[in-house]
Each structure stands twice: as C-alpha cells, then as structure tokens.
Write a protein that binds this DNA or RNA. Structure first.
Lengths: 256, 256
DNA sequence: CGCCTCGTTGAGCTAGTTCAACACTTGTGG
DNA sequence: CCACAAGTGTTGAACTAGCTCAACGAGGCG
C-alpha cells in the first residue's frame, strides 16, 4: 500500500539548505515515504486538490526486489520508470568507455533513483544494490500525465530533479576543492544527516559500501579512505570499526 | 521576437549521447533558438497541439543585458526565472562557506541557466557573464503553467533538467577519474562540439574564460592548465595562442 | 606611461597514489 | 565441520602528478 507524503521533500529542503557547511548538500528526495512508515497516510502539501488515489496506486503498483550486487537498471537500458528505495540501499555508477568508473551517488531507503534517464530516454548509469533491497517502480509516463493534472505533483517532480542538480553541484565542489580528509569527514556527516532523516541514529550507523566504493564516490583511492578513517579516529572525531561508524565529535568533523 | 524550436533538443540529444567518448557529455540545451537564427519560426515537436503564441511571448518578453564580469543572478537570490543565453557567454560558480569556489559550467549562446534554483526556490550558484552578454528571461511560474497545457513543452522542460543531471555526472566522472591532460583534452573537445552546434567552426575558436576559470572547472590549477596546453601543442594535437585555440588532431585528442 | 590582469615556465615540495604485505571476514564445497 | 578461496580492510614505503611559489613577459586600459 503506497503512502504519499508530498510535504516530505519540503521539510528536507529547509533542513538541507541551511545545513550547507562542510558537508555536502546531498539531499534525500523521496517520492514516497519509506517502507515501514509508522503512519501510512496521504498528505498534499500547499495545494488542497484531492489526489486521485487510484491513479497513485497504479503508479506505485510494482515493487522490485534486487539482491545484493544485482542491478536495478543498467546504463543504456530503455528508460521507463524511476524508482524509490523502500528497503536497502543502492549505488549509481557512471562508466567511461575505457573502463573508468565513478560512483555518483548512494541512495538510502526513501530516496529516488533514475531521473538521469529522462534526458535520452535511456539510463545514463548503472544502479546496483549494496544489500538485498526493494524499490518501488514508478512508471514515468504515468507520473508525467499525473503531473499535468495535479500541480503539487508537478512541483514535486520538478523539485526532485532540481534537487539532484543541486546535489551534484555539491559533489563537484567537493571533488574540485576539498582535501581527502575533508571529503571523508563531509561524507560521514552527509550519511549521518540522511540516517537521521530516515529515523535512525545519526551517531552510530553501518556503512553498506566498501572502501573502494566510497573512494570512487569521493574521488580518492580506497587506501586513502582507510587512512583518513584512521586519522579521524586518532583525532577522536569518530570511532571506526570496519563498516561500523560512531560519530564522536560532530562539530569537530564539520569544522575540518 | 522569440522563436521557438522545440525539436532542437531532440536533435542535440541523439548527437550527444552517441558521442560520449573521451569528451564529456555537456550538452547544450536551448529553450529557444539562438539570437540570430536565420529563420525564426515556430515548430512543435511530435505533438501537433497549436501553441498559444501570446503566452510564449509573455514568457520570453524580457531580455537582460549583462556586462562582462557582472552577475545574472547570485547564489541565494530568490528564484523566479530561468534564462537562455542569446548573446555572449556565462559561467556558473558554486561557493563554499569558507571561500572555496568551483566553476560548475560554462553556458554558450543558446544554452540554458538557472534550473538549480527550482529546488530551494533560491539560486544555488552565481551566474557571471564572461563577456558582454544578453539572456532571455523565462518566468518559471509561467513556464510551469504552460507545461501543464502543452505536453511537448512539459517534456522539453523535463529533458532540460535531466540533461543537466547527465551533464553533471559526466563532470563527476571527469573529476573522479581523469588526469589533468585528459581533462584539458576533453574540455577542448566539448567546447569544440558546442561551437559546432552553434554553427561556428569546431576547429578554431576563442575561449572566453581565463586559465583560472578553466582550472576551477576542471579541478586543477591554472598553471597546470597552461602546462597541459603546452604539452598538447608540443604533441601536435592543438595550436594554442592565448585564448585562441585551433584543433589540429581531433582524433588524437579524443584518444587521450 | 604605468598599473593591473593574464599567461607561461621553472624548481622544489607534498598529498595522495601505487605496490606490497598481511589480517580479518564471508561464503563455498568437500 | 573444516578448509580454502575470494573479497575486504589496514598499514608501510616508495614514488609521482600536480601544487605552490616565484619570476618574467605580454597585452589592455585609465
């Protein structure tokens, strides 16, 4: 049963844009609430046009289960749908013709994937599950036609796409200007914020990606990621044990 | 007098996505044709719904002149409009709270700016003219309501935003994986393609930005840009004289 | 003319890479 | 159940691409 919370994104927006400090503006943008929402119900932000629930159901009817390491979609696949992560976590990877790979994002539960495909009607990256996951499938054509009738939906979609643009410019800023240490610190703060937004502890969490995947995302080598974790730990800012992270000094991290 | 060519973007799309090689996928996305279009007239792609020309005129009524070095908009400015470059050329710059700056794009005539502002209803970067320029102002609220009535317009807007996402992932790939030499080569090829798309020679052109601006965009220092130009010239791939560029061996460049 | 911004080149330095060794975990098949 | 292979993470040591600092030359403009 799909639950729609259109005002979700608006809340996240205000949080995120004021929080643009050391960490990156990688905003979670949910089209729907996450899987185990305690109170699944329907809200419509600002506009009080009643939503046609049958249509929404049609849009969200399918969910896809993707095992760890398998793809949700692949670059060059025909673009039909976007996806909302319900359970688990994904990475998106763009690949250069001569083998170069770059992780362009990690999507946690509640976040949206696949908008890159609108442009060429083909996906532009691979989306791969980092653990056994589930994603809601949203037929883009249906969504678009719904947007023409429900203006809040239209705004939401536009905001979602623009948010992705903003997120990526934050990444560009990071890759262009930050030291390895700053990148790792900013990464941890970003994940922490997003865990919090999902209702998990922002102080302690498990990273689902490998050092290599983090390194690719951050534009550095896996060894450097490892060394920076050790360094931050030595300074008493975090406690790292493999994939388990505990943030000890949040302020210190954000001041890097 | 505004001239609308909705099928423009579609043509550019097919060219760009097949051309994804060494160069970056930084596609030009025009909302309108460029300033001195030889045959200003109206086409509507796919859909044959007659456009309401008065509305389009309303949307495109204003143009803004911006002198070299002045801003079209600034980060945190209230977002009202997006812009199409009619004459000249801009850069977009995101700024970190502690001074770090990153050029996230250069917009040539015919290309679109400002979609980053949709997300937070505030602009996310500064847009600065690299020479005396003119931009058409497109009131976003008007555009959005027009999109609800004209489906080709809606698709065009969505493609435009998605194209920006794709362009930025190309940049991420570059910043994350390429050597300084490859970045400069890819940059020249990209500009070359875009000059060609504007109807200018793809072999000889003038760069409007400084070495520093290129460096920021490419995630390297200005001195490195200069050295790489010298290196590429020594190898007989390009001829560089200050801002004047001549591409000598296109294939060689693309194989870097 | 003199001032300023811009571009080029050199020389030394350093942050991060590369390569290599080793420990720990996870999954697989006998 | 163990054995063993494959993937992952940490740390060290040497290396190098690109940075930093510095000098100088060439335009543009009041």
């Amino acid at each position: 049963m799909p639950s729609i919370q259109l005002e979700n994104a608006a809340n996240e927006a205000s949080v995120s844009s004021t929080q643009f400090r050391a960490q990156l503006p990688m905003f979670p943008h949910a089209f729907t609430s996450r899987a185990h929402d305690p109170m699944p119900n329907v809200h419509v932000a600002k506009s009080s046009i009643p939503l046609d629930l049958n249509r929404l159901d049609a849009i969200l009817s399918t969910t896809r289960k993707v095992r760890r390491g398998e793809v949700l979609y692949r670059a060059n696949d025909q673009f039909n749908s976007i996806y909302t992560v319900r359970v688990g976590c994904f990475k998106t990877v763009v690949t250069h013709r001569d083998g170069g790979e770059q992780v362009t994002g990690f999507q946690l539960a509640g976040e949206t994937l696949g908008l890159d495909g609108v442009f060429a009607e083909r996906h532009n990256c691979d989306a791969i599950a980092l653990e056994d996951s589930e994603a809601s499938v949203i037929r883009f054509a249906l969504l678009v036609s719904l947007c023409r009738e429900v203006s809040s939906m239209q705004h939401h979609l536009l905001r979602l796409m623009s948010g992705e643009i903003v997120r990526e410019s934050g990444l560009l800023l990071m890759l262009g200007t930050m030291s390895a240490e700053q990148r790792v610190a900013a990464f941890l703060l970003d994940i922490s914020d997003r865990m919090k937004a999902q209702g998990y502890s922002p102080k302690e969490f498990n990273l689902r990606m490998t050092r290599q995947e983090m390194g690719s995302y951050l534009g550095i080598e896996l060894e450097t990621v490892s060394r920076m974790f050790s360094k931050l730990q030595k300074r008493g800012l975090v406690h790292v044990q493999g994939k388990e992270i505990r943030i000890v000094d949040r302020l210190g991290l954000s001041r890097m």
